[in-house]
Write a protein that binds this DNA or RNA. Sequence first.
DNA 1: CCAGACTGATACGGCTCCGAAACGACCCCC
DNA 2: GGGGGTCGTTTCGGAGCCGTATCAGTCTGG
Lengths: 114, 114
Amino acid sequence: MPVALTTAQALTLWHDVSLSMVKDDEPDLSIRQMSILLTIYLEAPPHTVRGLAGKLGVSKPVITRALDSMGKLELVTRRRDEKDRRNVLIQRTVKGALYLERLADTIGNISRSI
Amino acid sequence: MPVALTTAQALTLWHDVSLSMVKDDEPDLSIRQMSILLTIYLEAPPHTVRGLAGKLGVSKPVITRALDSMGKLELVTRRRDEKDRRNVLIQRTVKGALYLERLADTIGNISRSI
DNA sequence: CCAGACTGATACGGCTCCGAAACGACCCCC
DNA sequence: GGGGGTCGTTTCGGAGCCGTATCAGTCTGG
């Protein structure tokens, strides 16, 4: 189902959503953190550090550090892969799901008002 | 003209656009910087430091610093207000307009493919 | 003409993030 | 069972941003 945003609509949407993210008192996630979080919740598991690094085109430490900070916020969790203990599996959390649900609501509401 | 994104569409759109921003080799703007830039280009001038700080709900130094960094990238310019020399007027640049034009294209293309 | 209000900029200490390199833990297979 | 490769993590110096407090320049009203 195509959405077909015009140039002005696209920028207005991005502006209003960014503004609402800045103005609420949640800790701002960086664009990289947001990309990681959305990838974890939208794409099929399993998710590994290396896989995410490849998908985003960034280095592994970037992923490790982003998981550290988002783990402190309880947006994601890490667990060792028992099949191959070198791997770390990144998992979703209730808080993370709620966070993205609210984000989707924000985007949806703003898109309807444009 | 309502856009009416579903939850999954909203998150997919945000995911794909964020991902494309991470993957291109431009320096990532923070969410605050992006909000400032979009405000300058979407809302009617004049734009002052104090006005932007109020609009975003942040302190004045945040605006000054964001204008410093985006000024280095030539996305915005500053000029003294000759009517009231206490004020600084923030102005658009060609590079800034092109940057946002490409962003709008990205959002538009992705929205059409969802 | 000058005290006080108001502007944007700056100093400071602290926190986060970055990229590159090195690290320990682990698996596989000869 | 041991060497080579693959994990994710850590370390290091450097850079950017934060909030608070303070600054110098400018305006305005008595």
